[in-house]
Computed example of a mutant assay.
Amino acid sequence: MAKKGNYDELAKKIIALVGGEANIANVTHCITRLRFNLKDESKADTEAIRSTPGVVGVTSANGQYQVIIGAEVTQVYEKVAAQLHNLEGGSAAPAKQEGSFVSRLIDTITGIFTPILPPLTAAGMLKAVLAILVAFKLVDSASSTYQVINFMADATFYFLPILLANSAAKKLGCNPYLAMMLGGILIHPNFVSMVTASKETGDAITVFGLPIYNATYSSSVIPILLGVLLMSKVEPLANKFAPKAVRFFTAPLITMLVVGIATLCVLGPIGYVISNILASAINGLGANDTLVPDGKGGFTVEDDYRIKYMNDHLVQVSEALHDGVDVMGYTAWGCIDLISCSTAEIKKRYGMIYVDLNSDGTGTLARWRKKSFDWYKEVIATNGESLKV
């Protein structure tokens, strides 16, 4: 573990051992790791980094060189970022990625979403705290306190396109401020008002005769990612062909006109449709469990679908054990219905114990065993012998 006063020294040493500042194309961090995109991974002295005090370990996967720090990774990252002058602001050319398409895709997605985990976590936890306050009748859902905390949490999701634009631009190698401007275009109040009016009157929204689809993009993900991807291709061309004497003015103008209109007219609608398809698929996960009388004066949930899923999964775990795989254990997620950390909702349920709680915080908090509870109890008691192969 790094000592508080040694964060600067540790950061300086890590930068030097990964090949120096010139070898670093990008760096982000997650909960425990510094995640580097190195231009030449062979220049990194992995063994020296592993033996450095304050470093827990080193691994490389999906195009990322990961230095494991532990709980103090945020403090170390801040010192690393402060010493990397070539990554400060503006646009930087992305590192040439190697490996399969899948590994490069995973690296890109990780690089875009990892930086926005703190605000997403904060928003989810604010929602969760608010639900608990309402459940224990400490805050009324009609009070101004509830409304203030609620919109504080909603801010992350409403302005999500702007947050994603910033991290996507840094990952894809274009100007993050122009990208955030594009995110602002998608959720601008005037545009939202125009869409609402268009839906009511039937009058189409157009720009230079090109139709704009009636969609709103707050809380959306794919539209802004498609827009920033296009920007990463258009901006270099604008900088290349704009006259040098007026490039400072004309390059951003060309970039935003082309990308802004293309996103509103083409990419945004495509992303909107894709998002709806994915949302429908994801919303099918989990289950809307319904309580039914258990014949003993209480209630239960007939969740045969959950039992089948867990049974089939554990059968595969058993086969893996027979094949010699070193399976250390299995944890069901979750044993009891949980509030979603990202949305603070409890509409979709995953546990084997039903909790009488609603997404708005109302409910008695009573617990009822689902059918899967007794099934899993038997699986444990028989060490898996009761599983149906």
Rank of each mutant, 00 (worst) to 15 (best):
A242T: 08
A165F: 11
N166S: 12
G202L: 04
I205A: 07
S198T: 12
Y272S: 09
M180V: 10
Y217F: 12
S198N: 13
A238I: 06
I212Q: 03
L186P: 01
G183H: 06
M181T: 15
L178H: 07
Y272K: 08
A168I: 05
N239T: 05
F248M: 15
T216L: 07
S193V: 08
L267P: 00
I187W: 00
G173H: 02
T196C: 06
P252E: 11
T196P: 02
M152E: 04
G184P: 12
C265F: 06
L237Q: 10
I149F: 15
G209N: 09
T216W: 04
P269V: 08
K199R: 14
V207A: 08
P176E: 03
P236D: 14
M256Y: 09
E200R: 14
R247C: 10
V259L: 12
S275G: 04
M152Y: 09
M181I: 12
R247D: 08
T263E: 07
G183S: 11
P223S: 11
C174M: 05
I149K: 01
I224C: 09
A251M: 10
L229R: 04
F159V: 05
H188P: 00
K199N: 11
Y177T: 09
C265Q: 05
I187F: 05
S193Y: 06
A245V: 12
L237E: 05
E235F: 07
A169D: 03
I205L: 15
L225S: 05
F248C: 04
I261L: 15
A169P: 00
F241V: 12
T156Q: 09
L230E: 00
L164T: 05
F208P: 01
N166I: 14
Y217E: 02
V234Y: 00
K233D: 03
K240V: 11
F208C: 10
I270P: 00
L253Y: 13
V192D: 02
A155F: 12
Y272Q: 11
L257F: 10
R247E: 13
F241I: 14
T196M: 10
L182M: 02
